[in-house]
Design a protein around this nucleic acid. Sequence first.
RNA 1: CGGGAUGUAGCGCAGCUUGGUAGCGCACUUCGUUCGGGACGAAGGGGCCGCAGGUUCGAAUCCUGUCAUCCCGACCA
Length: 636
Amino acid sequence: MHRAPDVSSVTAPRGSGSFRPPSSQVAMRVSRLMLVTLRDDPAEAEIPSHKLLLRAGYIRRLAPGIFAYMPLMWRVLRKVSRVVREEMDAAGALETLLPQLQPAELWRRSGRWAGYTAGEGIMFHLEDRQQRELGLGPTHEEVVTALAADLLRSYRQLPVNLYQIQTKFRDEIRPRFGLMRGREFIMKDAYSFHADEASLAETYGAMDLAYRRIFDRCGLRTVAVEADSGAIGGSASQEFMVTADAGEDLILASADGRYAANQERAQSLAAEAIPLAGGVLAGGAGQPLATPAQATIDDLCAGHGLEPSQVVKVLLLLARLEDGSDQPLLVALRGDQQLNEVKLANAVTTRLGASHGALLELTPLTPTLLERQGLAPLPFGFLGPQLGDGLLAGSGSWAPCFLRLVDHTAAELESFVCGANQPDLHLLGASWAGLGLSVEGLDLRSAQPGDRCCHDPLQRLEASRGIEVGHIFQLGRKYSSAMEACFTSEAGTSEPFWMGCYGIGVSRLAQAAVEQHHDANGICWPLAIAPFEVLLVPANAADPVQAALAQRLYGELQQAGVEVLLDDRAERAGVKFKDGDLLGIPWRVVVGRGAGDGRIELVERSPAHSQELPADGLLALLLPRIEQQRWGLLEA
RNA sequence: CGGGAUGUAGCGCAGCUUGGUAGCGCACUUCGUUCGGGACGAAGGGGCCGCAGGUUCGAAUCCUGUCAUCCCGACCA
């Protein structure tokens, strides 16, 4: 129920005497900025960028993973967006704005509704008043593919690359680190459509270059790494990482710069295995070795003078699939290697995906799970790859056979030690053939720092941490096939589009910039994305000479097209300097004691540097520097 | 969901062991003195001590339950 508003109370207060014409200057005075800075670190923040953005008043948390962008932050985000727009436009992409509220039906057609809403799914979803199911867009492949199917009929219309900059919603399992992993965040996403794979590769390459320019212009040092395609799917994919200690991803790279990959994806050469002294025993069936209570690789090796690389270890897992079936997995690795779950998930999907739908979850197969299925307990710690399928007989709902997967490192062993599938017993000198197993080696191991590189065994992988700010994918025809999005080819046949998709986390990027550019006193924004270019500080606002000179410079800087913020607060100079450092505006002009002689001070935030000069010389000195810095790390 | 921690004023914290009706710093308001690196003095405003139940003459404090937030893992721009 609404009451008609009292018209006189909402119209402009003409008679009040406070009327001002619209002017951008009003919002460029600190006293009018709604700026609240904090002296202490808020307890909710852990990493430097999160603390600083809160302390400097750029963001406020409303709920976990949900933040308000205050006016200064919004200026930063608009600047990042502008750089993104300019480079996307220059690369021939078209800006659009797609719906965030998306019908479930569309997601059912691509086969992603269940995976994205059930269990650990990340899509917020709801029912409207007619009980129609809707999802709040975490990404837009479905919407954009449906549009393409409607509108793009002929190869003559291709290629097309659509992008948008928009708020995305993801019900993250654990929101973290402020804007780094929010449940509501700003993202640039782009989707390209092609008549053939070569055209897709061409646009993918153009996006790669555009992304490098975008990050350079934003002043960010990034590394491009090979990546896993994850839930989005597709073939080739590359991530752009802002290097920073607080990054969530581990990057493995060679010193020669020729190889860099996310650890999820990275490949390497494992250390050579140390040959087992006795070689193959008992024709490869292995000789029993009493190993009382030696259930770990370490205990086993310590007890018998063995090396971890001489052991085959067996991991049992359970794959939960979209069609409701559960598939037990038996994974064999060399004892000194670690399982890479991403690689495992991909291997499982390749083998089972077609018939059982998406892989929802991989969990360790525990004694509790066995018990619930009514199965006999297993001698965990003493398992070998020859474990039979018979023990799965009679399970409640599991597939009756193991899916057996063996990593290269284990497959290549001529003779090894493995569990005997009885408590306190291992087999010494076993071989794959001797155990009656034929194996095909897969890459299932995690590459580690220090491993030799595949492209050059003399190179070693080095670890660093990164924040993923961009990701480009060649999706291929996954979505267009699923959603029957087809065009008519030159030959007159109907074919699904070749697709690519390209994302940049705009709000994450802004915080990553702080993570990479800060010091003990506060933020040091790269000028290209700083909320303002110059902070103008009259040291003593009560001094009419200083105030007048500051006012004059304020006008001159604006006239010259410089984005300038005037700290007109009646604070002491020290407060304004501290806040200035915290806010991180790249240049500070201090109008102080020298004002009477027309002298001012010009301070660069980072690297810290200050010089005194005549006020009349400011523009000549400052403008060229600012012009240059507007292009970030790009060579002008 | 599993493991760990914390909920007391806008922010950062003390008080809880040993129950007696709530305190410190910052921020905020007013006045005065200061005025180039988070000034000083005086006066002031602000808290259902996360919530619910219990024990007790009396609970921020003890007990039970519950909720929330943060950190470590699975998710990802």
